[in-house]
Structures are given as structure tokens and as C-alpha cells.
């Protein structure tokens, strides 16, 4: 082999173990910015803020849009704006640093390399996230990329965008409830008891489903699936074995505690209305 190692075309870094995780607020913000974009603009781009953990997971937690102008072969980014906004954000939360940038649209586009170059100077190995607001393939595709450089000897020839896994499981959104976030208009925020009711209903439906499935299997109507069977047995096994007497005591004690608290709080309330009455009476004197 005549070629020595130096003159081989090589990617740097050759492999990436980066994964990204996105906070729902980022998606919401991008959508909002896209809806509010200037008339002539085709896409919006902006900065992603967050943190990088030791195991290479990039946590994207915040974002802001940066105004830009784009023509066929050049991109003008409002760098002053970017820096001002960054300073403002850091005042609130100094732990959030630049982790990359986002753009709306499907996949990587021509101007992307230039913008990516700019962000590479701001931070090492930035992430490029694309959010397809146009639903090009009829689905909401959100992707994250990093670049790997193609170099010959010391000379950099090109950069290649490589997709990295993006975690879209949004626990934060689940906490708020998708029912609220996915509809156009919700008339009322559910209070605690209503929320409990929906959860209970869901649980009941799940139990019914499983019940039906088990029955069908026993009757021989459905081909049994070992996996599901194992899950069911695991679930049942996870109920702790407590002596019935001890369990009753436990439940009853807790019930009593709660009843006591309820009693106490109603007592306090009665006291309040009583004292109000007495106060007004005292005023009349």
C-alpha cells in the first residue's frame, strides 16, 4: 500500500455517540416562531440552549429565534441579536449554554452548512435540529444532526451532516397532559378530582382490556402470547403480599388519618366564618 495514513480521506470525528433529548417547550417555541415569522421568510432559525451531560446526551431545554436573511447563496444572521438574547437568557439561567441551532423545514438545506459553521465557532460540535413545520411527508419529522468533517491531510474538504438519535418522549408534556396540549382550545383546566377521575377511568379500561384478553386466551379464541403473559404475571406479582389483617389495619389507619385532617380543616373553616361574624358584630357595637 503506497498511501500512508495522512493522505487518506477521513471523517473526523469518525463516530459519534451523541444522543439528544428535547424538551416540549422547545417544540412549542419553534412552532410559535414559525407562525409569527416575517412575511417573506421561508423558514425560521434560532439558537438551542441546554446542557451536555457526561455520557454524551445533549439536553435541549430552551430556544430562541434569531432573525435572518437568506438569498440563494448567502445567509445573513443577526449576530448582535443572537448575542443579546444569549446574555439575557444567561442572566436567568447561567447553566443553560448554547448546544446548537434549529431550523424549520425538512432535513438539511443548502444554507445550513454556513449557519452551522457560525455555530461551530460559538460552541464545539453544535447540534442541528430540523423541525418539519410543512409536514412534507405527511408526518411531523423532527431530526437532529451533527457534522463530521471530511478531510484530506490537514485540509478540510467538506462537512457531512449525520443524523443522531433524538429522544422525543416528553415526560414534561405528559405531566401537563396531552389532552391540554394537543387540542386547539380547552375551556377549563381540570382540577385535582377531575384529573383523578380520568386516570381512574383509564386504569379501569386497561384492566378491562387485560381481563378480556385473558378470558379470550383461556377460551382458546386468541393465540396466547408468552410476552404478554409474562407482563401480566409480573404485574400481578408486583402487588405486595400483606396479611389481610395487617392490610386492613394499614388502610383503615390511613383512612382515619385523612378523615381527621378533613375534620380539622372543616373545623378551621367553621372557625373562620364564626370569627368573621363575631368581627362584624363587634364593629356594630
Amino acid at each position: 500500500m503506497a498511501t500512508n495514513e495522512q493522505s487518506v480521506l477521513q471523517f473526523f470525528p469518525s463516530t459519534t455517540s451523541l444522543t439528544a433529548k428535547v424538551h416540549p417547550v422547545v417544540i412549542f417555541n419553534i412552532c410559535d416562531c414559525y407562525v409569527r415569522r416575517p412575511d417573506q421568510a421561508e423558514r425560521v432559525i434560532g439558537t438551542l440552549l441546554g446542557s451536555v451531560s457526561a455520557d454524551g446526551t445533549v439536553d435541549i431545554r430552551n430556544s430562541y429565534a434569531v432573525p435572518h436573511n437568506e438569498s440563494s447563496d448567502q445567509v445573513a444572521l443577526d449576530i448582535d441579536y443572537h448575542h443579546n438574547m444569549l446574555l439575557s437568557h444567561q442572566k436567568v439561567n447561567p447553566k443553560e449554554v448554547i448546544v446548537g441551532w434549529y431550523s424549520t423545514g425538512f432535513g438539511v438545506r443548502a444554507g445550513s452548512a454556513l449557519i452551522h459553521d457560525f455555530y461551530s465557532r460559538e460552541v464545539q460540535n453544535p447540534i442541528h435540529m430540523t423541525v418539519d413545520t410543512g409536514f412534507t411527508n405527511g408526518e411531523a419529522s423532527i431530526k437532529a444532526f451533527v457534522t463530521v468533517n471530511l478531510s484530506l491531510r490537514d485540509q478540510q474538504l467538506a462537512a457531512q451532516f449525520q443524523e443522531i438519535p433524538l429522544d422525543l418522549r416528553m415526560v414534561e408534556a405528559e405531566r401537563v397532559g396531552f389532552d391540554i396540549l394537543k387540542t386547539r382550545m380547552v375551556e377549563k383546566v381540570p382540577n385535582d378530582l377531575e384529573g383523578m377521575e380520568t386516570s381512574m377511568e383509564r386504569l379501569l379500561a386497561l384492566i378491562d382490556d387485560i381481563y378480556k384478553y385473558v378470558e379470550d386466551v383461556v377460551e382458546g379464541r386468541v393465540v396466547p402470547d408468552n410476552k404478554i403473559g409474562r407482563f401480566v404475571s409480573d404485574t400481578i406479582a408486583s402487588i405486595p403480599k400483606v396479611e389481610p389483617a395487617a392490610f386492613d389495619k394499614l388502610i383503615n389507619d390511613t383512612l382515619q388519618d385523612h378523615l381527621l385532617l378533613l375534620y380539622l380543616s372543616s373545623l378551621a373553616r367553621t372557625q373562620l366564618s364564626l370569627s368573621e361574624k363575631l368581627n362584624t358584630a363587634a364593629q356594630i357595637l
Binding site: I27, F28, C31, D32, Y34, V35, T133, F135, E139, A140, I142, L168, R169, M170, A173, E174, F178, I180, L181, K182, T183, R184, M185, V186, E187, K188, V189
Partner: peptide, 18 residues
């Protein structure tokens, strides 16, 4: 309190719901 979302957000969330 009423909660409203833009159509775009609503579409994304429906897609992304696990």
C-alpha cells in the same frame, strides 16, 4: 383559564403523543 394552541402545535403534539 382557557388553554389555546395554534393549529401547528396541535398537529405536532398529536403526532408526538406516545
Amino acid at each position: 383559564i382557557k388553554v389555546s394552541n395554534s393549529a401547528l402545535v396541535s398537529a405536532f403534539m398529536t403526532e408526538l403523543e406516545a
